[in-house]
């Protein structure tokens, strides 16, 4: 497996950006996993803090890791278009540069914390693009986060709380809105896998979104396991995810393993 650090001029963001890519050294046609980091991190987070590269070894998957710059992977109310970057430019660029499969069934997106929100947000709005979205300890309820920002000022990203629905930033809002439309016309073919550690203080965000999505008829699974809001937990998440995508169903000595294996079947 090869590791690429890419520097290119993004048109969507109007600035040079960096990303890390893990890619097999085989004959091409690889599946793609867009892997998003959380607040405070960047394109290096998954590589420096988890064993993602080790787990990706020998699998037919390219792992693409962009930077989110604390901007939640949405088109910002007062800032740049990170959603356009993630769902249009980045996909276009990677599929032009590299020998990747461009089928929806081979395109995956996942992330932890803020990246979990970004992954679910992207897959809800672009169900044509991703076969599966993974959220690990996702910051899935931005209204709750907005009320308790804990030092992270999200107003440039989302604007005022009353403005959330104008851009469909709030996932619950968005799901409700889609339900009110003609429900039969909503593409619900994308699979959502929401995971969270039982010791995570914000586990309610994941369970709440799981229920909403389930009620709305999305293909959604919820997996909980021992774990906190930390890299010990996300390391197991990325391990399971890569096994899941590669379809090898390898046995993992892990409390959640049985749940993941069930999903794999």
């Amino acid at each position: 497996m090869a590791w690429l650090t890419v520097n290119f001029d993004s048109k969507a963001l109007n600035m040079p950006v960096m990303l890390d890519v893990l890619i097999p050294q085989g004959r091409g046609g690889y599946k793609q996993l867009y892997l998003l980091h959380g607040a405070g991190g960047d394109h290096t987070s998954w590589l420096t803090k988890s064993r993602a590269a080790d787990y990706a070894e020998g699998k037919n998957i390219a792992v693409i890791m962009p930077s989110g710059n604390n901007k939640c992977y949405v088109n910002n109310r007062y800032g740049k278009d990170y959603f356009t970057f993630l769902t249009e430019e980045l996909v276009e660029k990677c599929e032009t540069w590299f020998s990747l499969s461009d089928k929806k069934e081979d395109r995956y997106i996942g992330g932890m914390s803020m990246g979990g929100y970004g992954a679910v947000h992207a897959a809800l709005k672009r169900p044509d693009l991703y076969s599966t979205a993974f959220s690990y300890s996702g910051l899935l309820d931005i209204s709750e986060r907005f009320a308790r920002p804990q030092g992270l000022d999200l107003s440039p990203v989302f604007g005022k709380e009353e403005e959330f629905s104008t851009q469909d930033y709030d996932l619950f809002d968005f799901i409700n809105k889609m339900q009110q439309k003609n429900s039969e016309n909503v593409d619900k073919t994308t699979e959502f896998i929401l995971t969270c550690g039982l010791q995570d203080k914000r586990i309610n965000m994941t369970t709440k979104l799981y229920r909403s999505m389930q009620e709305a008829g999305y293909r959604v699974s919820y997996i909980e396991g021992q774990g906190n809001h930390d890299w010990d937990y996300w390391d197991r998440c990325i391990h399971n995810t890569l096994e899941y995508i590669s379809g090898k169903n390898k046995f993992i000595e892990d409390e959640e393993a049985s749940d993941w294996r069930k999903l794999c079947q």
Binding site: M1, A2, L4, T5, V6, N7, F8, Q25
Partner: peptide
Amino acid sequence: MSVMNLNVFS
């Protein structure tokens, strides 16, 4: 332009 550092196993 894109400049990439490619690290491969040989």
